[in-house]
């Protein structure tokens, strides 16, 4: 069973629509009990880090997701969902994350004449092979929408970067834990490819 975590953070429908287009049978899960023996988890989400973690904890989902990841089952965080995988965030205060990808989440530094949030389509550079990024086009392009970004403590967790004044982390992977800062569910063919890759891991 593929579980899509519902914790009140953003548009779940987009993710479900994309999974449906790929023929995947997804189940929306909003409590730890419902997570049960899910084989895979997608943690989507947009919004503030603190609210996201508070909601996950309230539904006892934080511990359940960590437990799931520790058993080696695949987990994919999308956008805020990827940032929640980090150890901590400085978004509106100091918040602890799920700590599955050691590192911190910080605001994108303004400057370079660039606007924050980073909104729109940007191409990524794959810097390490990852099953999440198999069979992509030469210059895969995805839809980004974020003001904060994940800085992994260990460089090797970063498997793809995106150029926005500086090189930001676009995708992370640590064993069975994956993250995409962009929205694969809103990135047409390249995005569906990434979701399909996750489904076949």
């Amino acid at each position: 069973m593929l579980a899509v975590i519902n914790y009140g953070m953003g548009n779940l429908r987009s993710v479900l629509n994309a999974l449906a287009a790929l023929g995947a049978d997804a189940r929306v899960v909003d409590t730890a009990a419902e997570l049960g023996d899910a084989e895979k988890i997608i943690l989507p989400g947009v919004g503030a880090f603190g609210d996201g973690m508070a909601n996950l904890r309230r539904a006892h989902l934080a511990a359940a997701i960590i437990g799931h990841a520790k058993t080696g089952k695949p987990l994919l965080g999308i956008c805020l969902g990827m940032q929640l995988l980090a150890s901590e965030s400085t978004e509106h205060g100091q918040h602890a994350g799920l700590d599955l990808i050691p590192g911190s989440v910080e605001r994108i530094a303004p400057g370079h004449g660039l606007r924050v949030p980073h909104v729109g389509w940007n191409s990524i550079k794959v810097i390490q092979p990852s099953p999440l990024l198999d069979d992509l086009e030469a210059e895969p392009t995805f839809y980004f929408l974020h003001s904060y970004h994940l800085i992994p403590a260990q460089g090797q967790a970063s498997v793809a970067t995106v150029d926005y004044g500086e090189r930001l982390v676009a995708c992370v992977q640590r064993a069975n834990v994956f993250g995409a800062q962009f929205h694969p569910e809103k990135s047409q063919r390249d995005g569906l490819r990434v979701l399909k890759n996750f489904l076949s891991i």
Partner: peptide, 23 residues
């Protein structure tokens, strides 16, 4: 600009494959 090749999905008439939706 993004000049992507033509994109098509043949599942445009499918309902989302959800067992239960909270919305």
């Amino acid at each position: 600009v993004r000049l992507s090749a033509q994109f098509r999905t043949n599942s445009t008439s499918r309902r989302p494959g959800v067992s239960r939706s909270s919305t």
